[in-house]
Every structure is written in C-alpha cells, then in structure tokens.
C-alpha cells in the first residue's frame, strides 16, 4: 500500500516536472548569458563599463578574484555566505546540544592500530597544509573556505581515529568564535569605511595574483578556520557523547 502511494506521489511530481516545468526552462546548453546578471559578473563590470578581463593583465577591477564562483560567493553575494556560515554554525550547535542530551554518555573507545598511527604522523601535516592551501587559494583556483575547512576537519578526524586519547579541546571553540565574529567584523569595517555592510574595501590588485581580490582571501581564511573548527567540534561531540 505504501509503495502504491509512493509511486503515485513520485509519478505526479515527475509528471509536473516533465510536463509543466521542463517546457519553460531553456534546453541544455542553450543559455542566453547576456540576459542574466552572470554576464556582467563574469566580466566584472556591474558598476563600470564593459571591458574584457584578461588573466594576469587586468588591474584594479571592481572584483579581483580569478575564480568567478568565488567572486560571487564571497563578494557579490557575500551576504548569502554569511547566512550559509550561520546554517553550519547552528547545525554544529544543534549536534552539540543533542549529543550532550544523550543518556548514555559513553565515549567511543577502540584499540589503536600501530600502522595507522605512524602513517598519520606523516600524512597529517600534509593534510593540514593542503586544507590551508585550498582556502588561501580560494580566489585563484577551485576551492575555498568550505572545502578547505572540511579538509582540515578530516585531518582532525584521522587523528581521532588513530589516537585513542586525542580530544578536541576548548581551543576549537575559541577559534570558531573569533573566526565567525571576524567575518561579521570585516563586514562592519566595510560599513565604517565605505558606508555599506560587507563592502570590499581593500584594493583588488591584478587578476590572478595571490595578493588580490581585496577582502576575499581574508574572508575565506576566516571561513576556513571556522568550518574546520566547527566540523571538528561536530566530530568530537559525536564521539564523546
């Protein structure tokens, strides 16, 4: 009976998507970029006139990150990202609250594995370095604060799996606090300097250089630290119970 209902509901929904929704969206690949705001965002000309952007040549554009997705995420629609950070933040707090409400406060223990422990010593610094690389180069290459922070948290997870005594200390919470507040403070600094919340108030430099794009790398670094600390807390909450 349940299955019949399920097929019915899914069928009605699919019928709606294919019959009603598919005709109104453009066919795959035939997108008119000119009609979308993305066109001006790619050319970094939402406030100025249109000029083709060239890698390593264009200077002092309104937004300096070579990765256009990053320039949308952390510059044009930075406010969304602030919300996104808050979603993750709330989810982490929720996991903390719910894990502390569990009745069986038993820590998950296991026998250590020597091979894993020794190889963790070799791999862990590389993992942390790679995570930091991802979020520092977020405005130049694919990546950014969220993947970078996740990579760092995975390093912490590896440490936790290889080492029975390892505990995430309160430092993670302080990191989370200062990184989260740092993001908002950067926004408020934009308000103090340029009069608008979350304004990019630093010079944007040459497209493709490490020191470019104004506040974007700084914000991504904050996000990286915050996400790393947050996910480490989640992992630790789930383990400690």
């Amino acid at each position: 009976m349940r299955r019949v209902w399920a097929i019915l509901v899914a069928g009605v929904f699919l019928y709606f998507l294919v019959g009603q929704f598919l005709p109104i969206i453009p066919t795959f690949g035939n997108v008119d970029l000119f009609a979308r705001v993305a066109f001006d965002i790619i050319n970094k000309s939402t406030t100025t006139n249109y000029n083709a952007v060239e890698f390593k040549k264009s200077k002092d554009l309104e937004d300096g990150s070579a990765n256009v997705v990053t320039s949308i995420v952390v510059n044009y629609r930075s406010f969304d990202t602030l919300g996104e950070v808050s979603v993750l933040f709330c989810a982490a707090i929720g996991v903390g609250i719910l894990a502390s409400m569990l009745k069986s406060k038993k820590r998950i223990e296991f026998e250590e594995h020597k091979v894993l422990r020794i190889s963790t010593g070799i791999v862990l610094p590389l993992i942390l370095l790679f995570g930091a690389y991802i979020f520092i180069h977020g405005h130049l290459s694919p990546g950014g604060g969220f993947p970078g922070g996740t990579t760092i948290a995975l390093g912490v997870l590896l440490l936790m799996l290889s080492n029975n005594e390892f505990k995430v200390t309160n430092v993670a919470k302080y990191v989370e606090q200062s990184a989260g507040a740092g993001y908002v403070v950067i926004g408020l600094m934009g308000m103090a300097i340029g009069g608008v919340f979350l304004m990019n108030f630093l010079p944007t430099g040459v497209v493709g250089n490490l020191f470019s794009a104004g506040v974007v790398p700084i914000v991504y670094t904050f996000i990286g630290f915050k996400v790393g600390a947050e996910l480490s807390n989640v992992i630790s909450d789930l383990r400690e119970g």
Partner: peptide, 15 residues
C-alpha cells in the same frame, strides 16, 4: 576561472 589556460572569458554560468 580565469587561468593560464583560459585567459579570456568563455565561461559557463557561474551563478
């Protein structure tokens, strides 16, 4: 992404 391989924009919609 602007890079050495794609110095000028011929991109999909990034939004």
């Amino acid at each position: 992404i602007y890079s050495t391989i794609t110095p000028v924009a011929n991109f999909v919609d990034p939004l």
